[in-house]
Computed example of a mutant assay.
Amino acid sequence: MAFAKNGSVCIHYERMAAGDGPPVILLAGAGRPSTDFDYGFCAPIVAEGFVPIRIDSRDTGRSTALIDTHPDLHAIKAAALGRGNTPPPYGIADMAADVLAVLDAEGIAAAHFVGRSIGGLVAQQIAIRNPGCVLGLALVMAMSRSMADAVPDAALDRLMAEDIPDEDAYVVRQLGVAQVNGVAGDFDAGRVAEEARTAWRHGIHRGGTARHFAASLAVPDLRPSLGAVRVPTLILHGRQDKVIPLERAIETAETIPGALIEVDETMGHDGPPRLRRLWGERIARHFAAVRTSI
């Protein structure tokens, strides 16, 4: 196992292929470990000669977890809307610094970045503050500002109250999430349960999703800075995404010069195997085109 240090935080990461091809950094969604980027997703990227490196964000997988920290999501949401000043336990900039620590540990000067949901916010933050580190961007389920104006209070209540004592309880939780966030035709209880058990055994931490959510609620509007980003960018989004509205992805694409957005009519806020495979294939072509144009 490989780890990088960012102050008191240890970040676990894993190379998904051997070789010295251009690295592709994989950043998962809120509360999710790096196992979401499975071999089905990575295979077409490896076939194009790239080396995927999947990272467990802090509070996921084998990275440092802040399990004794319990954010008040309502207060953080209010602060994001200009009412109060309650900060999150950590911000998107801190998570970006974690990723840069991995690059330093591996001696990587620049890489391609894939960010899913909150992972996309982290990737955008890196592109803004450390543009020389970024060769290409692929954002799946994209947003570029806080969802504080759109997230219902009931969702925050559920996150703050969430207590998942064991693997079986996490399976039940993920079955419910898949039914709400996904598309009915993709729902496969056996598949969802198997992936939930894989994630749990790799590392699901108490309150991790809430702390990630706190960071995303508090994120500043990145759009004023994204106009200066000159990185080939691909955005993949679903018209049926009930968590991040399509409009948020469109505005992100309109802000990054030259960004491409592709909308899947059959995609929600979920990543079943058929979509993971398609994402991997499309992202591999995108990064291959970037490599050709350099």
Score class of each variant (00 low, 15 high):
Ile164Arg: 02
Asp157Glu: 12
Ala288Phe: 05
Ala110Met: 03
Leu234Thr: 07
Leu139Trp: 04
Ile118Gly: 03
Val229Thr: 04
Thr252Ser: 12
Val172Gly: 09
Gly91Lys: 01
Asp186Thr: 10
Arg230Asn: 11
Arg62Cys: 03
Val134Glu: 12
Arg129Ala: 14
Asp20Val: 07
Thr209Ile: 13
Ile204Ala: 00
Glu281Trp: 00
Glu251Thr: 14
Gly182Cys: 09
Asp157Tyr: 03
Glu48Ala: 15
Ala169His: 15
Arg32Ile: 15
Ser144Glu: 09
Glu262Phe: 03
Glu167Trp: 03
Ser225Tyr: 13
Ile250His: 06
Pro87Ser: 11
Val9Asp: 03
Thr266Ile: 09
Ile108Gly: 07
Lys242Leu: 13
Pro87Gly: 02
Ala154Glu: 14
His212Arg: 06
Gly119His: 08
Gly182Asp: 10
Thr198Leu: 15
Asp72Ser: 11
Asp149Gln: 13
Val140Asn: 08
Leu26Thr: 02
Val172Cys: 09
Ala18Gln: 14
Leu217Ser: 08
Val51Thr: 11
Gly84Val: 09
Lys242Asn: 13
Phe287Asn: 06
Thr255Val: 08
Ala65Ile: 03
Ile256Phe: 01
Leu246Glu: 04
Val102Cys: 08
Thr255His: 03
Arg32Trp: 08
Glu48Leu: 02
Arg282Gly: 02
Asp188Cys: 10
Asp20Pro: 01
Ile55Pro: 00
Gly7Met: 09
His286Cys: 09
Ala169Arg: 14
Gly21Ser: 08
Val51Glu: 00
His286Ser: 07
Ala150Trp: 08
Val51Gln: 03
Ala28Gln: 10
Asp20Gln: 14
Met147Asp: 13
Arg206Asp: 07
Arg282Lys: 15
Ile11Gln: 01
Glu265Asn: 12
Phe41Arg: 05
Phe41Val: 01
Ile53Ala: 01
Ala65His: 08
Ser144Thr: 06
Leu236Cys: 05
Thr252His: 03
Ala154Gly: 06
Ala75Asp: 09
Glu254Ile: 00
Pro88Gly: 08
Gly40Gln: 10
Glu194Val: 11
Gly29Thr: 13
Leu81Arg: 12
Lys77His: 04
Ala148Glu: 11
Leu226Ala: 07
Asp56Gly: 00
Gly115His: 06
Leu278Tyr: 09
Asp270Glu: 15
Val46Trp: 00
Ile126Thr: 11
His269Pro: 01
Ala155Tyr: 13
Ala249Pro: 00
Phe3Lys: 06
Met95Ser: 07
Gly115Ser: 11
Gly132Leu: 08
Val192Trp: 04
Leu236Lys: 00
Ala4Asn: 07
Gly84Ala: 08
Pro88Tyr: 07
Glu247Asn: 03
Leu217Tyr: 12
Gly82Gln: 06
Gly268Thr: 06
Glu251His: 11
Val171Lys: 04
Leu222Cys: 07
Ala97His: 05
Ala178Gln: 04
Val114Phe: 10
His70Gln: 13
Leu81His: 11
Gly203Asp: 04
Met143Ile: 12
Leu226Ser: 07
Asp36Ile: 15
Pro273Cys: 10
Val102Lys: 02
Phe213Glu: 11
Pro44Asn: 02
Ala2Pro: 14
